[in-house]
Nucleic acid binder design. Structure first.
Lengths: 207, 207
DNA sequence: GTCTATATTTGGATAGAC
DNA sequence: GTCTATCCAAATATAGAC
């Protein structure tokens, strides 16, 4: 009867250590750039020697992979808040929080939105996280009447493009951040002009 | 009297070799990614051993620097052709050739439009090349009535953003390339709607 | 100008003791 | 789980002969 432990303390500790390593990896990447991540610098910061990290991650790419998935989960969470609002109002909120999220951490921006690590491709499960985030936003677009399939892709290009300019030309600054509202206006004026059907699609609660 | 050579054949040969090295560096970067450039692979392709490259470039970063300047000169040349046209027509041509230029070589795209090489910043003269290109396009925007200062920045973000999506999500494909015209329409509708003064500025041939 | 030889650094990864 | 010791590879850069 005593043989039924509710929690697996050992596994919990293992997961906690993984999380700590991951957090430290983000710190390192913030300081040295995405490509600057290396196990030699990482290990001492979590009180280990480099080989011990292999107890938690099978390779350096596995760390990038975990960062990729975590980054997209953070992104999804941030966007989800804005998606509570609807219409042009919600769109503007989404653009703002997305921009803030991207500009906040250039290394994360590069990992999530560009292919910049040589030889790295996200694993299937990690990639699925990013796909789910995209589908979530696509559903919001549908619900809110931005029904053209290209609309979402244009919108994403616009915001990711603005963030890229901010990061490349003036990291830490805010000139391009200040253009977000104008960009959203531009997008809205286009949607209204074309047959983008500004009217929200019918709520789908049943068949 | 015989001591007045018109041409410096030695210097010419030196420059030719530099150019050949540079061209081969582009080849390598096309194959292995921007970060994959290394002297060991580069040297044999130009019939040398690695140390000999230092006769032509002081460091690996110096090669990146030369590539940066050359890339922007190519970009300026490509854009200049489109700038021969004016108004919406010219704008559409610019967007198309810019997009084609960016998508054609992802590594070049990353070098010119993002900060992706750890520790690399273009030298002052190389940076000046990029500034001149930007000023050239800014002047075209002014001449053609796109007078809002933010207009150019929005336009650039839009096109660079589209190219980035194409490269990151489907390198070699053309889905986002196909969105260029829609993007230009969007931009134009916005400029017309706001006080972007669609009328071309007065031609300035004199004071 | 080009070479050989080599220094130096960096960094991922493994073996095996504890 | 963590360590020491080490391997192995890659890669920039320099010294000095030819």
């Amino acid at each position: 009867m005593v043989e039924v432990p509710i929690r697996d303390r050992k596994a919990e500790r293992h997961e906690a250590t993984k999380a700590e390593i991951l957090g430290t990896a983000w710190d390192l990447v913030r300081e040295q750039g995405l490509g600057g991540l290396n196990l030699r610098d990482l290990a001492p910061r979590v009180g280990m020697r480099a080989p011990s990290l292999y107890e938690y991650f099978a390779s350096k790419h596995a760390i990038y992979d975990a960062m990729f998935a975590q980054g997209y989960r953070q992104f999804a969470a941030v966007i989800a808040e804005a998606e509570a609002r609807s219409g042009a109002d919600g769109l503007r909120a989404m653009a703002r929080v997305a921009m803030a999220f991207m500009v906040e951490q250039p290394a994360r921006y590069q990992l999530l939105f560009h292919r910049t690590i040589p030889g790295f491709t996200p694993s299937e499960p990690s990639y699925a996280v990013s796909v789910r985030q995209l589908e979530q936003t696509r559903a919001w677009f549908d619900r809110n009447g931005f029904t053209s399939p290209a609309a979402l892709d244009l919108f994403i290009s616009l915001i990711v493009g603005l963030a890229g300019q901010q990061i490349a030309n003036d990291p830490g600054g805010d000139y391009w951040v200040g253009l977000v509202d104008a960009a959203v206006d531009m997008f809205l004026s286009y949607v209204k002009a074309t047959g983008g059907t500004t009217r929200p699609a019918r709520e789908r609660t049943g068949p």
